[in-house]
Amino acid sequence: MAETLTSQTPYDGVTVLRLNRPERLNAINETMLGELRDACAGLRADPSVRAVVLTGAGRGFCSGIDMRDFGPGMLAADDPAIDRLRFQEAMAALPLAIENLPQPVIAAVNGPCVGGGLALCLAADIRIASSAATFGNAAILLGLSGAEMGMSYHLPRIVGTSVAADWMLTGRTVDAQEADRRGLVSRLVAPEQLLDTAIETARAIAQLAPLGVQMTKRALQTNTDAASLPAAMELENRNQVLTHATDEAAGRRRNWEG
């Protein structure tokens, strides 16, 4: 049994992965670091899982790294630079693990989403927020770079360069309404509706053809950085040819045609 995560399957094909350190606003400690990495590896290898909901227990989504009680692996500023680099790379591997899942990931942001928590949220494919959610890039307030764990890559692509610079250079807290207005989230819902909305979205995706869904996710990720429209279309065209030839696509076409 995991100490810092819970996993549920409310519907076939849907996994709800919940960060579970509510007394610390689900801050990432050494145990969670390992358990979240292992959970992503398990999901990646499980073809029965077709969509994932990532959320937090209690009143927070994730408050970032646990600065007060991370565990024995926490390094000091005077530790060798190579060791501190390895630590940073281990943290940065978490959003990579989420982004690299073949299944679409829906972040259900239920409360404070800060630092490393924001990085996890940005790595998701879809972000749905409670009206009680808040977002912040707090590293710069601690004298560190505000660019960490993929944030300088993801955030400008989602909200634009100027807005990303505003948030990352000031470290200010962004409320759910501003996050919605700037396009950080796709939907803003009442707190009591958040999890149901995220699960229903995941359930709708899970009912679709897995290959079509996964090819769509890959195309979105790849073509965000496509060099040109023709380059993006090359990938799209090949994906369509591959998915068109599957038995599942043929069956769905027959149902569609009546």
Rank of each mutant, 00 (worst) to 15 (best):
V114S: 06
T134W: 02
A107M: 13
I126Q: 13
I98R: 05
A76R: 06
A139N: 07
M91G: 01
S130I: 15
I158R: 14
T161N: 10
A132G: 10
M91R: 00
R86L: 03
Q103S: 09
P102E: 04
G150R: 08
A108H: 12
A76F: 04
P80N: 01
R86F: 01
I98H: 04
M91K: 01
A133Q: 08
V105F: 09
M149K: 02
I140A: 05
L96F: 07
G117A: 10
N137T: 02
A81L: 10
V105R: 11
C113L: 10
C121P: 12
A97C: 06
M91A: 01
N100K: 07
A90S: 04
L118T: 09
D78Q: 04
G143D: 01
S130R: 15
M149Y: 05
A77S: 07
R157A: 12
I82W: 00
N137A: 08
G146T: 00
A138I: 11
F87L: 05
M149G: 00
G146F: 00
T134S: 10
L85G: 03
D78R: 05
P95T: 05
R84G: 02
S131C: 12
A108K: 13
P104S: 15
A108N: 12
A77P: 02
I98A: 04
V109T: 15
V105Y: 09
T161L: 14
S131T: 15
A90N: 03
G136V: 06
M149L: 13
L142R: 11
L94M: 01
E99L: 15
G146D: 01
Y153Q: 13
R84T: 01
L85H: 06
S131D: 12
L94Q: 02
I126A: 13
I158G: 08
S131G: 12
A77W: 05
S162C: 09
L96M: 12
G150Q: 12
R86P: 00
A119G: 10
L122G: 06
V159E: 02
D79C: 02
A129D: 09
D125H: 14
A139R: 04
L118V: 10
M149T: 04
F135Y: 09
G150T: 11
L85K: 06
A129N: 12
A92N: 07
G136I: 06
P80A: 00
M91W: 00
A124V: 15
M149N: 07
L122C: 11
P104V: 15
I82E: 03
R86H: 03
V105E: 10
T161G: 10
F87S: 01
I140Q: 06
C113F: 06
H154M: 14
N100S: 09
A93P: 00
I106D: 08
A139D: 05
I126M: 14
A124G: 14
D78M: 04
L142T: 08
A119T: 08
S152G: 08
E148K: 11
L144F: 07
A139Y: 02
L141A: 12
M149F: 07
S145F: 08
V105A: 09
I82G: 01
N110K: 13
N110G: 14
E89F: 00
S130Q: 14
A147M: 09
I82Y: 00
V114A: 05
F135H: 02
L141D: 07
T161S: 11
A138D: 09
A93K: 02
G143R: 04
